[in-house]
Design a protein around this nucleic acid. Sequence first.
DNA 1: TGCCAGGCCCTCTTTAGGGCCTT
Length: 203
Amino acid sequence: MTSANSLVVLDFETTGLSPNMGDRAIEIAGVRLENGQVVDSFQSLMNPGRRVSGFIEDYTGITNEMLVDASACETVMGEFADFIGDANLVAHNASFDQRFLDEELARIGRSYTGEFVCSMLVARRIYQDAPNHQLGTLIKHVNIPADGVFHRALYDSQMTAKLWQEMLESIESRYALENIPFALLKKIARTPKKNLHKMLQAY
DNA sequence: TGCCAGGCCCTCTTTAGGGCCTT
């Protein structure tokens, strides 16, 4: 059972960029955060029913051979829907992951009730001096130790969770806040950069 | 590391174009 402040940070690896173009998920992972601590995690490869391109094999390290014996997307996504429950959701460039989550769950008649917030949109506002706002760059920018390989779902979701916690602590520190609610993070992600400082000062 | 899309965001903007970010 999830608590009221449960948050799931998730990441997909896929056959490409667009479910509307026929792309499918090949790996899903998520870590559950409660009170800033990772309390559970989920990771599974899934068989999209067709071969993945050489580009995707190289980009993710997930090969066609690895996917042959993986469970079908329908099976894995059902398990993942159970995992996320009613938790709110975070992903880096969430519009991408949300499209695949919506598409894969629609295929099995499942849905979710949590709300998405994008860690990239928050990072663009909190770390305006970062060289860029790719996940790997931000992890380095804020000096989070990284000894794994990016572009795998579990590692990326773990790193996104650490970045998320770092951003929360940074905002709390800068504005003398405690226990920032999810709703404020949603608001930060939508607030124009030029208005952000004033909005947080007034909060 | 690229192409495919889509949302966000900036600007030499809003009757638009292009970069960023995700795989």
